[in-house]
Computed example of a mutant assay.
Amino acid sequence: MKKMIILFAIGIAAISCGGGGSDSGGCSYNGKTLHVGEKGGCYYVSSSGNKEYVDKKYCRTCY
């Protein structure tokens, strides 16, 4: 049972963070598309148009 739960969690993480070498790479944080800035910052654009930075760990697979 534990193995099934772990595999399920890994599958969800893979779907939500997909790989890629583009700006966003299909990664998301709380339903917002993540972007990687020129200097490596990880952010999403808020509804007001501002960049909201999140921990870089959320963009690990976005590069």
Rank of each mutant, 00 (worst) to 15 (best):
K51L: 02
I15A: 11
C62T: 07
D55N: 15
T33A: 08
K57E: 12
S24R: 00
V45R: 05
E52A: 03
L34K: 00
K3Q: 14
T61E: 09
Y44K: 00
E52R: 08
G40N: 13
D23Q: 05
C62P: 10
G21P: 00
N30G: 05
A13V: 05
V36P: 01
C27T: 03
S48A: 10
V54N: 10
N50E: 14
A9R: 01
S22L: 08
F8Y: 09
D55L: 00
V45K: 09
E38G: 04
V45N: 11
G21F: 07
G19H: 07
C17M: 05
M4D: 08
T61V: 02
C17E: 04
G21M: 02
G19P: 03
T61I: 00
D55S: 14
E52Y: 11
Y58N: 15
K39Q: 15
Y29P: 00
C17R: 03
G20L: 05
I10K: 07
M1H: 09
A9G: 10
A9S: 10
G41Y: 09
L7F: 15
M4R: 02
V45P: 11
C27K: 05
C27F: 02
G11M: 06
T33P: 02
H35T: 09
A14E: 14
G40F: 06
M4N: 00
S47A: 13
H35E: 08
T61C: 04
L7Y: 15
S28E: 15
C17G: 12
M1P: 06
S22D: 15
C59H: 06
K2D: 07
T61G: 12
V45G: 11
I12H: 14
E52H: 07
G18L: 13
L34G: 11
F8K: 04
S22W: 10
C27W: 01
G49K: 03
M1S: 09
I6P: 01
K56L: 08
Y29M: 01
G40D: 13
E38W: 00
G25C: 00
I5H: 07
C62H: 07
C42Y: 00
M4T: 12
K56Q: 14
E52I: 10
L34P: 01
S28C: 07
